[in-house]
C-alpha cells in the first residue's frame, strides 16, 4: 500500500512536471503568436518594397525584416558549418581515441568552455576584431564572418559533448560486432558507430541550431546592427532577427512597433523550425543511405 502511494506521488510529480514544461512552452508560443499574428503581413518583411522583387533582392528593403531574415539564416549556417565538422571530429576523438589524462583534461576544458556566458564569447569576438583590425587589415571589423565564428565557438562544446556521449552510450556488444568481423577501427566508426549514434548527434546539432538562432549577446558585439540591408559580404555588418527583437523590446515607441517585434519572434521561430526540419531530413537521408544502401 505504501509502495503504491509512493508510486502515485512519483507519477503525479513526473507527469505534472512534463505537463508544466509543455504547457509553459505552449503558453509562451501561444502568447507570441497571439500578439504577433496581426503584424504578419508582407509589409512586415518587405516594407513598402514590392514583395516578389524584394524577395529576390532586385529592390532594396528599408523598413522590413527581410534583410534580418537573410542575416539570421546566413549567420546560423556559417556557425553550424564551422562548428559541426569541428565538433564531430573533436567528439569522435574524445570518445574513441583520447585516453587517460589527455581525455580528462580535454573534457574539463570543454566543460569550462560550455559554461562561458555568451556575452563573454561576444567580448572575445569583439577583441578579436580589434586585433585583426589593428594587425591584419583596417578593413576588418565586426562582421558576419566573425559573428558566425563566435556563435560556432559558443555551441562547439555542446556539440562535442553530444557526439562524445552519443558514441560512448553505444553498447559494448555493438561496438565489438564489426571489429569481430575484421573491421578496422575507422571502418567500425564509419559503418557502425556513427550511423548508430546519428539520432543523438542530430539532436545535438538541432539544439546547436536553435542556440545559434536565438543568441543575441554574441552577435550584438560582433557584427549585428539595426540597419545594414541584406548581407552583401562576409566582411560586412548584417541585420539579425534576435537583435531586432531585443532592440524593439527595449526601445519601442509605439504599440505597433512592439507588435512588429512579436511578428519578428514568430518569423524567428519559423526559421528555427525550418532549419530543424532540414537537419532532420538530412539525418533521415544519411541514415537510410548508410543502413540500407547497396
Amino acid at each position: 500500500m505504501k509502495t503504491t502511494g509512493r508510486f502515485f506521488v512519483l507519477n503525479i510529480w513526473v507527469v505534472g512536471s512534463a505537463l508544466a514544461v509543455v504547457s509553459g512552452a505552449g503558453v509562451v508560443i501561444g502568447f507570441v503568436i497571439w500578439r504577433g499574428v496581426p503584424a504578419l503581413r508582407p509589409s512586415l518583411l518587405f516594407g513598402s518594397a514590392p514583395p516578389w522583387k524584394a524577395f529576390w533582392g532586385h529592390v532594396p528593403v528599408f523598413d522590413g525584416l527581410w534583410p534580418a531574415v537573410l542575416g539570421t539564416v546566413s549567420v546560423v549556417l556559417l556557425a553550424v558549418g564551422f562548428a559541426v565538422p569541428l565538433g564531430l571530429a573533436a567528439g569522435i576523438y574524445l570518445a574513441e581515441f583520447a585516453r587517460g589524462r589527455t581525455k580528462q583534461m580535454l573534457s574539463v576544458a570543454f566543460d569550462i568552455l560550455a559554461g562561458i556566458p555568451s556575452i563573454v564569447i561576444g567580448l572575445f569576438g569583439f577583441s578579436l576584431s580589434l586585433s585583426l583590425h589593428r594587425f591584419v587589415s583596417p578593413r576588418i571589423g565586426p562582421c558576419l564572418l566573425l559573428s558566425g565564428f563566435c556563435l560556432g565557438v559558443l555551441v562547439l562544446p555542446y556539440l562535442i559533448r553530444a557526439v562524445q556521449s552519443a558514441l560512448e552510450g553505444l553498447p559494448l556488444s555493438l561496438r565489438l560486432t564489426a571489429l569481430s568481423l575484421g573491421a578496422h577501427r575507422i571502418q567500425n566508426l564509419r559503418y557502425v558507430l556513427l550511423p548508430s549514434s546519428l539520432n543523438a548527434i542530430a539532436t545535438g546539432v538541432i539544439l546547436a541550431i536553435g542556440r545559434c538562432a536565438e543568441d543575441t549577446a554574441v552577435i550584438l558585439l560582433t557584427g549585428a546592427v539595426a540597419l545594414a540591408g541584406k548581407p552583401r559580404s562576409l566582411l560586412e555588418n548584417f541585420e539579425a532577427l534576435p537583435f531586432y527583437i531585443y532592440y524593439v523590446s527595449s526601445q519601442y515607441t509605439s504599440a505597433e512597433e512592439l507588435q512588429r517585434g512579436f511578428g519578428a519572434a514568430i518569423i524567428l521561430l519559423t526559421i528555427s523550425l525550418g532549419l530543424y526540419l532540414i537537419a532532420l531530413s538530412i539525418r533521415h537521408g544519411i541514415g537510410r543511405r548508410v543502413f540500407y544502401g547497396r
Binding site: S173, L174, L176, T177, A178, S180, P195, F291, Y292
Partner: peptide
Amino acid sequence: AMVFQTPNPLPMT
C-alpha cells in the same frame, strides 16, 4: 570468427 551471447545483427538488412 566469434559469435556473441546476445544476437547482434547490425541495423541493416
